[in-house]
Amino acid sequence: MATTAVTFDRFGDVADLSLRTVETDLLDEHQVRIGIAVAGLNPVDWQVVESETLAAAFGISVPAGFGNDFAGVIVETGRSVSRWNVGDRVFGGARGAAVATSVVLDEKHRSLHRTPDGVDDLTAGVIDIAGRTASAVEAALAVREGETVLVAAAAGGVGSILTQLLVRAGARVIGTGSAASAEFIRSLGAEPVEYGPDLARQVRVAAVGPIAAAADLHGVETASTALELGVPAGRVVTIEAESPPAGVLPVNGSDARPGALTRLLDLVAEGGLTVPIAAVYDLDHFSEAVAHQRSRHARGKIAITTNTAS
């Protein structure tokens, strides 16, 4: 059997990504084959291509596939599989493999989940990394009702989910972004401020009171501003900082509590959470999707579809 997949043979440049037909092995007795309907992009996807060191940390060596987040349906099961049936809708993460028409995973793969009723493939297919990260950051911030929280990159994939979670928890959120993202950030329930050298002054004006906690979802500029504004280091969280300021809490998706994704998709099904989709590309235009994601200006998530999404 063959799959069409985005792959690369050397590290260093996302321009080396290519769409190829790849022959796949027969299933082992405990494996399942998933027909992928949607794959979601994250910064770590292209960072892995550019960094052999980061790739090694995830157990990826070349030649390799690309992407992590996916949603689709079980199309084949190994002879001893008991957890899944052909036709089951599933979602999750397949590191270095998801941007493809199919992927093979062990039936007990830790990032393979059943898609809840009431959730479409487009939403389920982009939530694995961003959802786990937003959930982990929310838990680390430990926000109490009525507190004011500063969120950097509030319009991004993680930020758009986190902002909604904090608002649901009763926090007042000040979200940083570009001027063009202001209305989108406001639609999430936050007060927008523009990032840049004037950030501290803007936050003081918008907050009209103390900032209790902060989440820097891109670098350390907002984390440093939060410390300048008097936020205790233990209530400042970063997710993409190689050298965060002393005392702040580095967090990533692996820190999410068990059941975090189920909770988020239950909220989606109930109408209590939206996972914003900035753009959808078909598989033949994956390079445009990658460029869009790498621009860091997407309002929400970038998705790639094989045109079989439900």
Rank of each mutant, 00 (worst) to 15 (best):
L227D: 02
A241T: 09
L217C: 05
I239V: 15
P232I: 07
A213Y: 00
P232F: 03
G209A: 12
E240G: 13
S224L: 14
P210T: 11
P210S: 11
A226M: 09
L217D: 02
G234F: 02
G234W: 08
D216S: 09
A213G: 10
T238A: 00
L227A: 05
E228P: 02
L217S: 04
I211Q: 04
T222A: 15
A223E: 11
A233M: 01
V231M: 03
V208W: 01
E242W: 12
T222Q: 13
E240L: 15
V236P: 11
S243H: 14
E228G: 09
R235H: 12
H218W: 06
E242C: 04
P232S: 06
T238M: 03
S224F: 02
I239D: 04
T225F: 12
T238F: 00
A215Y: 01
T225R: 10
V220Q: 05
P232Y: 02
T238P: 02
R235M: 06
G219S: 04
E228L: 13
A233L: 06
G209L: 10
V208L: 13
A213C: 09
A226Y: 06
T225V: 15
T225S: 12
E228D: 14
A241F: 11
R235F: 07
L229Q: 07
V237H: 01
I239L: 00
R235Y: 03
G230E: 03
L227K: 05
T238K: 02
E242R: 14
A214P: 06
D216Y: 03
T222V: 15
V236Y: 05
A212F: 02
L227Y: 06
P210I: 03
D216F: 01
D216T: 05
V231A: 00
